[in-house]
């Protein structure tokens, strides 16, 4: 695996890591204990995926960095996640919409990765795809209920769609690193995943009774290390302990 392939691997790992960390913020704050547990389960799935992917990236890099090192000792500009996943939780509707959009993208991606010629990556994807299928079902179920629920829930989830739509192109951005891996046959271009995403998206929107989002100027750059202001504060919370006590173990 070439150095830029490792960089591309971080794009996948960091999406899971950052979204997992975001969802952890709901712990103890969700509307009900059941939803609290559901969101924590999603978070733990994502952090598990990130751990496997980051450990692998660290091994291939060969500089002695493991998942913890990569998660806790990189600054924001070294992160390769899309800007969608670092967006604040907002209300429950925003969290659900963000998760729906992410899962609609991650499902065809991980599905494709299960047949990567890189056996280790295929193995990680095979484990993760089962989790991600549930994530998509869960998010779609909530999307439908919010969309078809009350006037207020519909308004909020429509607002959430308007808000998150601008980050969808960033999710699908094909960086040079990603393109290089695609040329080597490790994974498809993200652009090739878009039709599957659109199909899932349209089906979900139809179930929820949601209209097209307001046109917005798309924002891209996450895959290049250009992030919104929100990532730094997320990382500050996530990294403060291992940075303050680098030798701590637990």
């Amino acid at each position: 695996m070439q150095p830029n392939h490792i960089e591309a691997l971080l794009e996948v790992a960091d999406d899971s890591l950052v979204l997992g960390q975001r969802l952890c913020e709901w712990c103890g704050h969700a509307p009900t204990i059941e939803v609290d547990l559901s969101l924590s389960n999603l978070a733990l799935d994502l952090i598990g995926q990130a751990t496997l992917l980051l450990d692998y990236a660290g091994e291939r890099e060969g500089q002695g960095r493991d998942a913890d090192r990569l998660a806790f000792h990189r600054d924001a500009e070294a992160f390769r996640n899309s800007m969608l996943v670092e967006q604040p939780n907002g209300d429950f509707a925003r969290t659900v919409m963000r998760h729906f959009l992410f899962a609609a993208y991650a499902n065809p991606l991980f599905e494709a990765l299960t047949s990567s010629p890189d056996a280790r990556l295929a193995e990680i994807a095979a484990k993760s795809i089962k989790e991600l299928r549930y994530h998509l079902e869960y998010a779609t179920d909530w999307l439908e209920r919010l969309g078809q629920g009350t006037e207020e829930s519909h308004r909020r989830v429509a607002e959430a769609y308007d808000w998150h739509w601008r980050f969808v192109d960033d999710l699908f951005f094909d960086s040079e690193a990603w393109k290089s891996g695609a040329e080597s046959g490790l994974w498809p271009l993200r652009a090739q995943l878009r039709p599957a995403f659109d199909e899932t998206l349209n089906a979900g929107l139809a179930r929820a009774g949601l209209a097209e989002p307001k046109p917005v100027w798309p924002i891209v750059g996450g895959r290049l290390g250009k992030h919104s202001e929100h990532l730094s504060s997320l990382l500050a919370t996530m990294q403060v302990l291992p940075r303050a006590h680098p030798e701590a173990t637990w």
Partner: peptide
């Protein structure tokens, strides 16, 4: 709120 979500909550709990 409904049977399908009850199954999801049961699974997660």
């Amino acid at each position: 709120p409904d049977a399908d979500m009850a199954l999801r909550h049961a699974r997660d709990t």
